[in-house]
């Protein structure tokens, strides 16, 4: 009798679309994203040969958008995994052990929340220099505060439950309790926040690359494509519109998927904690 979950299906569909594009990029296009530059075909509008048109160097925008998805998804997923690991370990251990460690983690989390994470990422990128590895580090270190908060509050409510107390009396070590008793019981909310986090990371990657701090040209990142297309916005708008659309679709997809997952998991969580 559950209502049809539009968010989940629409979001999942969009995310799947982007994933398929990224994974099967070489099969979906006959061009190369970097080397198939041909000034003869520069700034061609979309047609049967170049579906999304070409940019100022005559590269196929469709091909570059497909390969761009690989970078966006890699950055989004890997940096969110780093964020989740940091947020979960800090949040669970802070709530479980309490004391000065909890105070410290809380202070750190609040500081992270007070400073916009993009500014933080910018600072880290400025130190490490551009490139994919530094992008992963910068985005992976700056967006764990919500995960940490959710892990902390879940742990606070779970650690008084009988099964956690029982695990302690049965001789489980603290780390084992966190891994086997606490962590599996918060996957729902963590999954939701991580999905939203991937969307945010995709957006942040585009912003940083647009500013020239992320993926450098000629490699096709949606953000760096926008940088290149900025000057062509009047003569060749397609060079800016399609990467922009790709960012929009991806971020929307992850956000809808996150909301859909929340709708799906929430009644479960409520009835379990009731």
């Amino acid at each position: 009798m559950r209502r049809f979950n539009l968010n989940l299906w629409l979001g999942g569909g969009l995310v799947l679309l982007v994933c398929v594009g990224a994974v099967f990029a070489p099969l979906l296009t006959s061009f190369d994203p970097v080397f198939d530059a041909n000034l003869m075909y520069a700034e061609e509008p979309p047609d049967a040969q170049f579906w999304f048109g070409t940019d100022e160097q005559g590269r196929d925008v469709y091909t570059r958008v497909l390969y761009g998805a690989r970078i966006s998804l890699t950055v989004g997923i890997v940096s969110q995994i780093i964020n989740s690991v940091i947020g979960l370990s800090l949040g669970i251990s802070a709530a479980y052990w309490g004391g000065w460690w909890d105070d410290l983690v809380n202070g750190l989390t609040n500081t992270m929340l007070a400073v916009p994470s993009l500014i933080f990422a910018l600072a880290i990128m400025a130190i490490l220099g551009p490139g994919l590895p530094s992008l992963l580090i910068a985005l992976g270190l700056t967006n764990w505060s919500w995960t940490c908060r959710i892990a902390r509050s879940s742990t606070l409510s779970l650690k008084g439950q009988g099964y956690v107390l029982a695990a302690r009396t049965l001789g489980y070590g603290d780390i084992r309790i966190m891994a086997t008793q606490l962590l599996p019981n918060m996957v729902g909310p963590i999954l939701v926040i991580s999905t939203l986090g991937i969307g945010a990371a995709v957006l942040a990657e585009a912003a940083l690359s647009f500013l020239g701090l992320g993926i450098r040209p000629p490699f096709p990142s949606w953000g760096s494509m926008l940088t290149g297309a900025r000057e062509l916005i009047v003569i060749a708008p397609w060079a800016a519109v399609f990467p922009g659309l790709a960012i929009f679709v991806t971020v929307l997809g992850f956000n809808l998927l996150g909301d859909g997952l929340r709708d799906l998991l929430d009644p479960h969580m409520r009835s379990r904690t009731a």
Binding site: G162, Y163, L165, A166, T180, Q181, N185
Partner: peptide, 17 residues
């Protein structure tokens, strides 16, 4: 030495195991 039986049978078992 000692083990405990808890009051609320709904909260005393790990739902994921």
């Amino acid at each position: 030495i000692a083990q405990m039986v808890f009051q609320d049978p709904y909260a005393s078992l790990n739902p994921r195991q």
